[in-house]
Amino acid sequence: MANKVETKLIDPIYQSLQKERYVTLATIDHETGAPNVSALSWVYAPDDSRILAAVDNRSRIVENLRQHPAAVMNIIVNQSTYSISGNAHIRKEKLEDVPLKLAQIELVVSEVRDVMFYGSKISMEPAYEKTYDERAAAKLDEQVLEAMKKAQP
């Protein structure tokens, strides 16, 4: 039986995107036309139909989205793996009140699919550690999240 396709973020995904989270973002490479996958952690869902992300404004993601807006975000949550498709664009070239030059990307959700293979579940979600000063990392993470929230329309 085929999995149900949603047109908005389901609640467990939305709730998990209220704080920093490990996700991957697939875009179409602007030079090769091939898929390009990047790992991100500065993500935030202001509502159930959009996901914001902050990336270095020199990131390949930025030029990829300028050329081809189609994107897919992958997230592991709720004991499963979800594919979130839509069109993405550069919402802000530089987030204010952040010491890094970060662009803000907005992914407008068009489709959410549970893509976990049949008869299985995720027993442990991915975890990561910052490899630089913990206090500096926490401060930067807070600055980025606040800047993304403040940049809302």
Score class of each variant (00 low, 15 high):
residue 28 I to T: 15
residue 122 I to G: 00
residue 45 A to T: 02
residue 145 L to C: 04
residue 61 I to Y: 06
residue 45 A to N: 01
residue 135 R to T: 14
residue 132 Y to A: 08
residue 133 D to W: 07
residue 100 L to P: 06
residue 65 L to G: 08
residue 3 N to S: 11
residue 83 S to G: 12
residue 128 Y to K: 09
residue 16 S to N: 10
residue 18 Q to H: 06
residue 90 I to H: 02
residue 38 S to D: 06
residue 71 A to P: 02
residue 117 F to S: 01
residue 17 L to F: 07
residue 56 D to K: 13
residue 62 V to C: 08
residue 103 A to M: 10
residue 132 Y to I: 11
residue 15 Q to A: 09
residue 43 V to F: 03
residue 6 E to R: 12
residue 37 V to W: 03
residue 42 W to V: 02
residue 128 Y to C: 07
residue 32 T to Q: 04
residue 137 A to V: 04
residue 53 A to E: 02
residue 43 V to I: 09
residue 142 E to T: 15
residue 33 G to D: 03
residue 47 D to S: 10
residue 2 A to S: 12
residue 144 V to P: 07
residue 43 V to E: 03
residue 24 T to R: 01
residue 98 V to D: 04
residue 84 I to N: 02
residue 8 K to C: 09
residue 144 V to T: 08
residue 105 I to F: 05
residue 72 V to H: 03
residue 4 K to H: 11
residue 41 S to W: 11
residue 127 A to V: 11
residue 104 Q to R: 07
residue 44 Y to T: 05
residue 137 A to P: 06
residue 138 A to M: 09
residue 117 F to H: 10
residue 133 D to T: 05
residue 18 Q to L: 06
residue 101 K to S: 14
residue 32 T to L: 08
residue 20 E to R: 13
residue 88 A to W: 04
residue 93 E to P: 00
residue 18 Q to I: 04
residue 30 H to L: 00
